Simulated assay, not measured.
Amino acid sequence: MILRGIAQVDFQSSPWTGLVFLVALFAGGWQFGVFGLLGTVAATVTARLFGVSWSERVAPGLEGFCGTLIGVGLVLYLDVRWMTVLLVIFGAAAGSVLTSALNVLLKPYDLPAFTAPFCVVTTAVVIGGSAFSRVGVVPASAAAASGTELSWTHLWQGTLNGVGQVFFQDQWYVGLIFLAGLVIAGWRLGVVALVSSLAGLATGWVLGAQAADLAAGLYGYNSVLTGLALFGTFVVATPVSALYALLGVVAAAGFSAGIGALFAVVAGHTLTWPFVLVTWVFLAAVPMLSRIRRA
């Protein structure tokens, strides 16, 4: 159940995929593995305690993945300390309640909550953390200004980092482990993730993004989630839906810069907001599109 919660970050219910994802988190740093597990457990236990459906939600891991991201995100932005432990536990618990609330609100539109609870909780904690002396948000590093010339190294590392950045990881070998976890669930998933990450990177390059940001996967990870969601997971995979998904992938990458600039004003972060908003729009449009069908 816990491993499935980790795997559900990328819409997978395989515990083996979740195990590989967990290995990848520890490869990125012990703190990411520990706090990712802590967030997953806290969110899952909260859902179980309050009586969320076991068979439909808890057992498949659907109540754990936002907790995973809350744990990894908060330890990245707040560093390792006891206050971070408390914030991850209570943040994941609040994220579980918010997940239920959003599922109720979005049910008439047949839209999942996706990672919106994680985005809301993490944004609130990071932005509000500066007001509390015992929280202490880690200052954001200065943006790299390496120019827009894209090298082969930028290209292949950025493509793999786009897969890893779904979990806030920017080491290409960690992204490769995450990719292996997806391939375990199905080789087509690995292809979709790679193509989506590359398309997001290409979108950023065409628009003139900094090469260092492209190499770090910052324009790929929202595209990865969008591609996985719109091709085979929530939309039936067909040649036409492949084009539809590609449009969503490009939109998510382009939207990333706008969201990032917006939240930078209040010391926030892009997170997976572009994926959530773009995918909601694309799924909401499906009933009007006769050649696109929900899975």
Rank of each mutant, 00 (worst) to 15 (best):
A113V: 01
G95E: 11
A193F: 11
T68V: 09
V137F: 10
F231M: 12
Y244M: 03
W172Y: 15
V23C: 13
V138G: 01
G204H: 09
G158R: 04
G91D: 12
A144H: 10
V137Y: 09
S197N: 06
G162Y: 06
L225H: 07
T272S: 14
V278H: 03
A94R: 01
Q8R: 12
G136V: 07
E149Y: 07
S96Q: 04
L111C: 04
W156C: 03
L198H: 05
L262F: 14
L218I: 07
L247P: 00
V249Y: 02
V166P: 06
A131T: 04
L38N: 13
D10G: 00
M1Q: 11
A142M: 11
V192Q: 05
A295L: 09
A251K: 03
K107C: 01
L228Y: 09
A242W: 05
A101R: 12
A93G: 08
P15M: 00
A24S: 15
Y221E: 08
L150P: 09
F35N: 15
V276F: 02
F35H: 14
P239F: 00
S241K: 04
S13M: 06
W156V: 02
L176W: 03
L214K: 09
A284N: 05
T148V: 08
A264D: 15
Y219H: 15
L179G: 07
R188G: 05
G136Q: 10
L201I: 07
T159E: 05
Y219N: 14
L22C: 10
L243N: 01
L271G: 09
L74E: 06
S256V: 01
F50K: 07
S241H: 04
L49M: 13
R57L: 04
F168V: 13
F263A: 03
I2H: 12
C66Y: 06
R291I: 06
G33E: 05
I292R: 08
S151R: 08
A257P: 00
I89M: 13
F11E: 09
V104S: 09
L76S: 12
F114W: 10
G181P: 11
V34W: 02
G73H: 02
F168P: 11
G200R: 01
V45H: 01
A144S: 15
V52W: 14
